[in-house]
Design a protein around this nucleic acid. Structure first.
Lengths: 115, 115
DNA sequence: ATACTATATGCAGTATACTGCATATAGCAC
DNA sequence: GTGCTATATGCAGTATACTGCATATAGTAT
């Protein structure tokens, strides 16, 4: 590690963010389209605090960006690089969907026209 | 983690292999062409046992394959998926090169015609 | 057979990441 | 202001990964 050029250290750190089942799940969901925390919470079936902590890691590394809208905070993938890495590992993205048990506007049908 | 579909667990484990500076360095070197352990040892500047252990992880996950030739063992990247992930993270591969201090045939000039 | 070289493996100590829980903040409605 | 909802943060215990060292194996040469 001591002799490794910076590119490998940084690249590894970036891969590290994708190298986690929950974060990978979150990112796979986000490439369908922006989603709020409650949406991801419903999809992953995990406590809110847990989701927020994974999102923080992704956000601090500029893998995702957040956009506040009232109480809800919508996250989306920050750059196309990450999307291509996901495609390479998981295949093409699935279309956006509504989620049972998610109270956000997108899932209760206030803004999306066709599921 | 408990609810995560298998695809995310497996994908994350695969990303995990790339998420390490030394392994990333090794893989970046291997995409220039096959290389023996002593070659990687010379490039990374790390103990032989250390290199072999990282190679074992990569080999057991079928990220690289080994090919014995007498005393030397040549490793190469197993599939194009990994190469594309490396391209996405590190950019295009550099051309093959000889390495100072590596005693293998490739580096002492017994088989390669042009460096 | 012995000696030497290249590579592999096992184990142990240490560092780092994961994850659950309690709590804090921020925005909206009243 | 209070109360409620959505999200964020801090911390601690546990699990996992990293890495150094000693040693084992396997192939070649003599």
């Amino acid at each position: 590690m001591s002799k490794n050029p910076r590119a490998y250290i940084e690249g590894a750190a970036r891969f590290q963010l994708l190298a986690h089942p929950s974060r990978l799940y979150i990112l796979d969901e986000l490439r369908r389209g922006p989603a709020c925390v409650c949406h991801l919470q419903a999809v992953l079936g995990r406590p809110q605090a847990y989701i927020s902590q994974q999102l923080r890691l992704l956000r601090e590394a500029d893998v995702v960006v957040d956009e506040k809208d009232g109480l809800n905070v919508y996250y989306r993938i920050a750059d196309a690089h990450v999307v291509r890495l996901l495609e390479e590992m998981l295949g093409p993205a699935q279309p956006a969907r509504r989620v049972e048990g998610c109270p956000c506007p997108h899932c209760t049908g206030q803004e999306v026209c066709c599921s």
